[in-house]
Amino acid sequence: MTAQHVPYMDRTRRYYAAQGFEKAYAWAHFEDTPFTPPGKPVAESKLALITTAALYDRQATDPRLVASGDTAEPPERLFGNDLSWDKRATHLDDLNSYFPIDRLSELVSEGLLGRVAPRFHCVPTEYSQRRTMTKDAPEILARCREDGADIALLVPL
């Protein structure tokens, strides 16, 4: 049996409509999608790990900024209390269930991945797509390039 996938866009629209917000959020949509084939085997590549979780217990009113951390000494946990995820069904108590730093290290040891880039990055999930496209995404790109990342693994909560 295949269960019905959760219609997240529809649920979110209904949820905010119930809060009296009249204008429905318009999710990003594009006709064309970019594609870059890898320049070398994954086993020889340096991978940047990118999350939507935050380095600290950010409040809803705090500014959301691009942040980075050290992958050689990863944090014990990251935070997402101000983000939308299923807080009734699950939790963020196991870092590797949403930020697979130890799993990546194991895959490096097994030879499936070259190495993990020295920094991981936290992307703010902004209401404003323009802000994401003109400020945050270019900042993430710049940091990936500084670190010499060949490929990127993105893990949204």
Binding site: W85, D86, H91, D94
Partner: peptide, 9 residues
């Protein structure tokens, strides 16, 4: 459920 995109805790 949203929150564990890399597998079960």
């Amino acid at each position: 459920p949203l929150g564990n995109p890399c597998g079960r805790p």
